[in-house]
């Protein structure tokens, strides 16, 4: 097949994105046990951040490769020929890249709509200690959740609202506020934008579960802020919420073992005098920014651009 200048760039970008994404997906699947073990030995907030960085590596790596290497090398070194042949292999890989992007975008849009629709049956309400939008729903008894990504809204079941005392509601809302401040729903969206192409390897799924667990622990730590009395109060609220839950309807597939283990671990942590959480993430973000800047500077070195362009020419042929 022959393409124009822009068409070849698009084909190359999609194909190289797919190849880098898939390679990094395989890598993180294999390294997941190491990453999880390392992260779970850190403070929950840092551990969750580390696991998220690893989980998003395929997406970030693919985008960085295209943005910093593929496109600059092509624009600088590719002669502006009207039409040039592209090999069938490169076209097929580029189409796989299109499918990958489409699937991840579709999953993200579906999740956003689902998240937004969840708030629809809720009755708007004002909650003490919660400045943003909140709603009360009828439904499973122990619902207290933050929905939405850019405009997050809190949802609470009527039964739970009636059952909790003012201090209990306050500590529960502080837990949800921690999720809001950490932008955990946005992080979930980013994970959706980086789908797992190798579902038969358990590593990525295990990493997501570990990330979710550490995220909850980090929110617990932030909510109690080192106060032991608040830790005990939050532990009590968690257990009471768990007691209020109704059994699942037949079509749901919640795991009994998963729930028991997670709740028990959270309560044990809270009862074990957790250390105050560090609210600043400046160091990891600054490190990542410096690393990206360094990579960018390195990537624009002429020798590297030539090498990348040569490799991409081989891909296109």
């Amino acid at each position: 097949m022959s393409f124009g200048y822009a068409g070849r760039l698009l084909c190359l970008s999609l194909a190289s994105f797919f190849l880098v994404f898939t390679s990094l997906n395989l890598l993180i699947s294999l390294l997941a046990p190491l990453a999880i073990g390392f992260a779970e030995r850190r403070r929950p907030r840092l551990g969750a951040l580390l696991l998220l960085a690893v989980r998003l590596l395929p997406l970030a790596g693919g985008l960085l490769f295209v943005g910093i290497l593929c496109v600059p090398s092509y624009l600088r070194l590719e002669p502006a020929l009207d039409q040039e042949q592209a090999g069938p292999v490169s076209v097929v890989i580029a189409l796989l890249g299109v499918v990958l992007c489409s699937v991840s975008l579709a999953a993200s849009v579906r999740a956003l709509r689902k998240s937004a629709s969840f708030f629809r049956p809720a009755q708007e309400t004002k909650l003490p200690g919660w400045a943003g939008s909140a709603g009360v729903i009828e439904g499973p008894a122990s619902v207290l959740a933050l929905t939405g990504v850019l405009h997050s809204r809190l949802v609470i079941s009527r039964e739970l609202l009636s059952a909790l005392t003012a201090p209990e509601l306050d500590i529960a809302l502080r837990h949800e506020k921690a999720h809001l401040q950490s932008r955990d729903n946005l992080k979930r969206l980013l994970i959706l934008l980086s789908p797992n192409l190798i579902p038969f390897l358990p590593g990525v799924r295990a990493m997501e579960r570990s990330w979710a667990r550490l995220t909850e622990w980090a929110a617990d730590d932030r909510a109690v802020a080192g106060d032991y009395g608040d830790s005990i109060l939050l532990a009590d609220v968690l257990v009471r919420c768990a007691r209020m839950r109704r059994p699942p309807e037949p079509l749901l597939t919640s795991s009994l073992l998963c729930c028991n283990g997670d709740l028990s671990a959270r309560v044990d942590r809270l009862l074990g005098r957790p250390e105050p959480s560090h609210t600043s993430s400046a160091v990891p973000v600054a490190t990542a920014a410096l690393a990206a800047a360094g990579l960018g500077a390195l990537a624009l070195h002429p020798a590297i651009l030539h090498a990348v362009h040569h490799a991409l020419e081989l891909l296109l042929d």
Partner: peptide, 24 residues
Amino acid sequence: LFSNSHSSPEALISCLVDAVGQYD
């Protein structure tokens, strides 16, 4: 929406406790 909410990112929600399922 709340089935497996903690382990699955698809729901884009952050819950206090898994809202459905059974605890021992």
